[in-house]
Amino acid sequence: MATEWHQALQSQLDDFIEKLKDRFQRQSISIVESLGFVPGAGAFVSIGSRSDAEELFLSEVVIILCRNQLETYEASLAGEFSQACFVSAESKTADIEKKLVSGVHGPKECIFVEVQ
């Protein structure tokens, strides 16, 4: 049983790494550390400089590392920061005939990685 589990996990990880490799070859990718994750609202990322913003919003793929689960939206905002952003998905629009298109200005894909 344990082996099946392990194999399944290993194959998921392999897929993920393959996906990343593929993207590294053809797209800009950035890895951003968040302050934590609030279910629904997304990853809460502090932005302290122009380059922080560029990393979060100008790459084609952004990977957001989430080390903590923050209790609530309110609790996230209780901390100190200059500027911050809840990111729950990629940059998207439905402004033309309500058709959903990803990657209008910012990342075309946003990957949240829970780090334990």
Binding site: A53, C85, F86, S88
Partner: peptide
């Protein structure tokens, strides 16, 4: 928070938009 969720739900049928930006101080 409640108003923001209602705004997203009523405007674009999402509970949260992709980005919610917060500003307290200028960046350097």
């Amino acid at each position: 928070e409640g108003v923001q969720r209602l705004l997203s739900a009523s405007a674009t049928a999402q509970e949260y938009t992709s980005y919610v930006d917060f500003f307290r101080k200028p960046l350097p």
